[in-house]
Design a protein around this nucleic acid. Structure first.
Lengths: 192, 192, 192, 192
DNA sequence: TATGAATGAGATTTCATTCAT
DNA sequence: CATGAATGAAATCTCATTCAT
């Protein structure tokens, strides 16, 4: 049961944060949605911000799930990148408020080390893809997978965020932006 | 005098935000550092978040100053990009807490449109550089300057942030990361 | 005005503590009686217990007032002691809840040094009386005033407290107890 | 086993109260130290304050033990008083926090009658000593044992407390204070 | 304009107590 | 008897905002 309540709180927090933003969200909002008592919250989390790592973990899990199902193992690297960009944009469309809140939660948190660990799976996943592509000669050999993985993720996520954060005509822009990113990547990695 | 106080408040806010983060900062902290009375704050800003555009403006000014002085007008595009990357990393090293806070302040604000306008100068600056480079044939012609400018800034800033937010061995990594970014850009833009 | 509110809070606190005891008293009770806002309390005191030194100060002032008016300057030392005992018993009858709460507040406070300073005036007052009586030969010469003053105050106060704290038939016992204390003191100081 | 747990709770309560004070002590602190479950507390005590009589009982038992072993049956009354003062100071040195907490617990409890009963053994013990001394002519005949016993205990305990509560140079002062109390008592009781 | 004491709504936080196991 | 997760009423405390000066 214990794990259950903790999970319910995290799930509820994500939902409420998405709707109201971090600052306007009260603990009481979260527990109400979670269906637990006010005190129960403090059984698991000392404060609102201490939820962030748990939320980030959930988001990373979701992201990994989507990446695994959206990016075909058998496709060429070039196609995989196309799928990858599509997937990140889709995740961002769905969850850009959470991305933002994780980022801003991150900015307030002191335990930055925790964050690194949490995001590791995504970096590893992409890094392996790059390694394989180097082996097959699909991308230039000078690529350093670990670093480039982080660059790519930073690039694609910031591109996606630009769409949903800055632009009013999000819908229209998304496709253009995606195309641009794919093109950019294609050259950067010197794909065939 | 009036303008003076307003500026003092913005300056103080930047300082306090850098040290404590947005959420933990109280108006009273800001006015104390600014050396003005509690009530004076409300003469100039209706709320804590309404400071953000003013702060962003200051940051953009600073950024533009640095870019203008760091990136030589006469250098080749390739060299300019090198200088650009160096400059953004330097700005980030100095101000990464503020970058983060602007971003997170941005996430909480409803008036996103203001932000776009504030950042416009940087986008325009880079966009013009790209246009010129296309003209001289220094980069591939298929580049769409306005979009690519945003992509590049997103890429370089996220790369710089990764250094200062995530990595413990920041100093060591910075050079590697910069080199990687330059390489990445060189290929992405197909510089000669 | 400021000092005013602080005083009102202390006054109200004494009143409420007397009626409800420390533990059952909420900050909200105090501010309600004081007629100030909840937040005003925290402008002057960080917590309920931090009121104690201020309360003790008020009590010491009251005690000194009563002592000065009840103990005749011109009377013989023997008569002064009689008046002193009567006065302490009267103060205790009126304020024994506060004595108790000061004592228990004292037990929880870390800043014991503050307390010493606060009670000093009473010790000094009695000490001077003892010095004079030694000079006039009214009490034995071997008395060490400063120490004995504390002993006497401890004796008389604990005797008075016993009446009001432990005994049910307080009224009846008071006179007997007072007589006993006076007799005890008479011999202890070897008054003529 | 049952009696066992109850005792463990009382023991733990004494320890925790000594360290944190009554008000800051939570039931959860007590049960944690006692090594029993939260709910178990309520099997034996209806509330935090209902622990006080049990704690006082333990303290009185300890006090009586020490008095019996420290005060020689065969010694002269004068010597017994010397030993008594020494013993009370020693007890106070060891347990002054508990004395204070019992006192303050007492102040919050409504059932003061319980307290009287608990302390009775000490009063009776001293009262009997006084009676015997009157019979042997070692002290003045006008002494009323029951009352005087309470006065003496009040005097000696307040003297001892003054040492450990107020004075910083406790070690140095203790001897002076003890000597002063003994002298004071000697005269008050008109010992030979 | 400028002040800063005062406000009080509303948030956080506590913790004695319960109860299903 | 014993447990300890869960509760939620009730407390503490915060702080953006006001307003008389």
């Amino acid at each position: 049961m214990a794990q259950n309540k903790k999970e319910m709180i995290v799930r509820a927090a994500i939902e409420v944060f998405r709707n109201k933003g971090i600052e306007k969200t009260k603990i009481s909002d979260i527990v109400q949605v979670a269906g637990v008592a006010q005190g129960t919250f403090y059984l698991y989390f000392p404060s609102k911000l201490s939820l962030m790592p748990a939320i980030a973990e959930v988001m990373v899990e979701k992201t990994m799930e989507i990446l695994r199902s959206a990016v075909s193992e058998k496709a060429s690297f070039s196609d995989q990148m196309q799928q990858f960009v599509e997937a990140i944009f889709k995740i961002n469309e769905e969850y850009h408020e959470i991305q933002a809140l994780i980022y801003s939660g991150l900015a307030s948190t002191e335990h930055l080390k925790e964050w690194e660990a949490v995001y590791e799976p995504i970096y590893v996943w992409l890094s392996e893809k790059l390694d394989k592509a180097k082996d097959t000669g699909e991308i230039r050999n000078s690529i350093r997978s670990a670093h480039t993985a982080k660059l790519i993720i930073g690039l694609v996520e910031s591109a996606a965020e630009q769409i949903y954060l800055y632009d009013s005509q999000a819908e229209n822009m998304a496709d253009t932006q995606k195309k641009e990113v794919k093109e950019f990547l294609k050259h950067a990695l010197q794909m065939e």
